[in-house]
Design a protein around this nucleic acid. Structure first.
Lengths: 199, 199, 199, 199
DNA sequence: CATGAATGAGTGTTCATTCAT
DNA sequence: GATGAATGAACACTCATTCAT
């Protein structure tokens, strides 16, 4: 009866097991095609346990978002805050967001596909954090434009949306078993961005 | 009974009214947050009428897809087939897909967000048409790379995914009432692509 | 466009084609699993045509019943009214109802399975005709019992229900492609009845 | 709120109440004239409760079948396995199936009228159990035919179908408030069978 | 005579959530 | 902390029937 019968090991704490199961299922079949029943079965717990730790189904979604937002914000802060020249900082940040997106492809796929299932106040919160991330990235572009190492022909926020568009889109085509590693893809996409910014 | 009480004018034929209502609602709140009941109310008809013309809810989605796929394929064919130099042809195609995406922002938003709700065989069909579109675009990039007017540093399909990523992403940020017109956005995004391809 | 494309030949009049199609479909999948749409498609006409000739879906059922009731009543009248000895008359009637049931197995299967779908007044009418048929048959049994050629140990109506039970049940097991012909089955069942009635 | 307002007493467990309500309604108006809504109202619970215990509407039907099949199989085993002479064993089995059919007339009426509403795999299972029952009964007939106490003029399976036909048919005419008790009917029908088998 | 678009009440089923234990 | 029976509103979809043409 006990032991390692289910995918989620009983060693890990219940909330983590629930979150892991939900993440996998949301990415596999989408938020609304996944029932709470399926999540608790995959996590090897009962419905009561889920509602003990999470207020609702979309709380789970919110937690997934929190995880990926926190991760990306932290990494961006690290790259942007270095003392390297701006083109190095932007390049590394641009490549890193690709790598971490691929490494957490489930989370980010869910992010961009299921946002609209959050309730209004959680959605507002997520959007605010997202905007902060965008602005931080945009500041790097603007810094380079002001100092002349990047062309100012294109408004900085368009540049940011251009790059992030391709990042969002990774879930639509990137396959781990494919020809290119995460690092190779990141290198190529960062190259494209840097070339597009040459004066 | 008569008059302009509902959003969908009674003058138009019922199938068009249904499709218009569905498109708007799918774009506003997503495919599965939209009930069939809401669609028929918005169109001013009854459920029976909907199922008289469409086999299922996801038939409506499929019709939206058909419309946008046909439109984009035709426009790409026109641009790609011209006699202009390859950099002109690619630039115009790249800008045009932005303009038509913005002009049909509801349809394209639905497209990229709700694809996974189609049944397997409809999904396969849509994906096949989508792939053809991609390949046509990629052929332009490769032509330029072979003739040396574009850099070959980045594989052509990555370039295409890079550009289309930003196109898919338009629905996430473009607002008609914003600062930039569709043409201006298209010009900027095409510039970014062309600069990224400079040798 | 014209010709013999559909199962129901266009040569036959429309009401007959409808009735034939309905009979086949009712027997195949039951009354409620058959939609009016399927009937008209199988008959190669439109819904309007059906409602032109028949007042409702259960009118079709009623017509099927009428056909089989009329047929069986007529045949029973013929056998019962002959001048042969009563044991011959009963035996022949008992065998004949088996043969005609098998020859119209679709109709009779529908009859015994779908009766309860008729509206109250049609149901009453069918039941009345059915009862007349039963009574006619019972009269033969009683005649033989009074004259001593049949045992009177079992009440005549139980005898009739015994025999008709096995007739109703034919649809559950008889297969045209099976080992026994309709006549052989009829012979055996009539034998069983006659032996059961021996004094 | 409390009290004896509904047919199903609140003392009994919910699944039993649902099954009892379903049995009664299926027998009264047939499987498909009975809606799930009517069943839950009769049982005094909600739809959610029904689907908590039963996977689907036809699961209810299947449960009814299971009950009657189990009962009849057990009783037949008891009678067939006794040490009495074969004519006694067959007579008692033939009479007993009539008594238990009458005592569970709702269940058996449903059985013979609604079988075809089961899904394919459930139907196959029920048919297999039914066939076992038939074969057990047929073995008794064959045993008597081999030993010469029964005539071999009629094939044994025809004899079995003859008798079971009349059993199936009981629901069509037997009324508890009628002239004959279950035992009396059973006696008469067993008599008919035994007389029909006399050499 | 016949059409087929349109109706509207109805179907079985799902599911996030609650709460007595 | 955790259970799982029970809720109740919502869901996509069906279909016999009607009626303007």
């Amino acid at each position: 009866m006990s032991g390692a019968r289910c995918a989620a090991p009983e060693g890990e704490p219940v909330p983590q097991r629930l979150l892991a199961a939900a993440t996998r299922l949301f990415a596999e079949r989408g938020y609304d095609r996944t029932s709470v029943q399926e999540i608790v079965e995959a996590a090897g717990v009962t419905k009561g346990a889920l509602y003990h730790y999470f207020g609702s189904k979309d709380d789970l979604l919110h937690e997934v978002y929190g995880r990926v937002l926190r991760l990306q914000q932290e990494r961006l802060d690290a790259f942007a805050g270095s003392r390297a020249p701006v083109e190095t900082r932007l390049r590394e940040a641009a490549a890193d967001v690709v790598v971490t997106t691929i490494e957490n492809l489930d989370d980010t796929t869910i992010f961009f596909r299921s946002m609209h299932h959050l309730g209004p106040e959680k959605l507002a919160q997520v959007r605010a954090e997202r905007r902060r991330y965008h602005e931080r990235f945009r500041a790097l572009v603007e810094e380079g434009q002001r100092s002349g190492v990047f062309t100012a022909a294109t408004p900085a926020d368009l540049v940011v949306d251009y790059h992030f568009g391709s990042v969002h889109h990774l879930g639509a085509w990137y396959r781990a078993e494919g020809r290119l590693s995460a690092q190779q893809v990141a290198g190529h996409l960062a190259d494209l961005l840097m070339r597009a910014l040459r004066p």
